[in-house]
Design a protein around this nucleic acid. Structure first.
Lengths: 112, 112
DNA sequence: TGGATCGTCAACCAAATGGTTGAATATCAC
DNA sequence: GTGATATTCAACCATTTGGTTGACGATCCA
């Protein structure tokens, strides 16, 4: 597990990679489209996507000549879980937490 | 903010540093005591503590010849907050969240 | 078939990282 | 003051990282 966390945090430590993740939050994207907003080479982006895939933060699927990238939140969740032990949540956090909980509780399938 | 997150995630990407943070969860510690369980040199631990301090994950305070290290959860919290947008929380998380919320709500000073 | 597009690979480079050792600086305790 | 303890500093080293460029293998389309 610690090796997995190494990879996840390492992947998250780069601003370009975090920006990519945020973009993928919006929608799945092809490699070329991921690269478009950045000034670095396509090969560099390709490497970043490799790092993210290795860390399990995204999944890549090839369809034809296009390789689609989609977010995989489960790895992020592992990191989140590890950090969770450290949080003494203050009021600000509490608000966010309550919103999350309430949203889930109000879903049709949810039950107390 | 992104530079701050760079530093935080970078700091968290090393297993030795994560282990140190877990140790400090238990109690504040002197540098030498932090170093004790590890096989690497004291100087290396000192560097790790520097990285953690730089990232804002711990605070160091010198008293006499001893430098005390204590956890500072606020930086962790920044990272946690960034990640929060990515989480589709499943039932397992919900349980943990509820516990946190309820614990806070049941504190004397807490109010709905 | 042939040209354009998508993406990776390989080789290379500079800078950062995690480690070492040995010397230096404070502080404490006698 | 002397010696032991706590911590950092400086110089060094090997490896990793994030980037480049140019060539390459697939795939689409006309």
């Amino acid at each position: 597990m610690t090796q997995k966390l190494d990879a996840i945090f390492q992947a998250l430590a780069d601003p370009t990679r975090r920006a990519i993740l945020v973009m993928l939050l919006e929608d799945d994207m092809a490699v070329t489209d991921v690269a478009a907003p950045f000034e670095i080479s396509l090969a560099a982006i390709s490497k970043h996507l490799g790092v993210l895939t290795q860390a399990g933060l995204i999944q890549q699927e090839r369809r034809g000549r296009v390789k689609w990238c989609k977010l995989d939140p489960s790895a992020m969740h592992d990191a989140w879980n590890w950090m969770h032990g450290f949080g003494q949540f203050d009021q600000t956090d509490l608000d966010a937490l309550e919103l999350s909980v309430e949203a889930l509780l109000s879903e049709p399938t949810a039950q107390k």
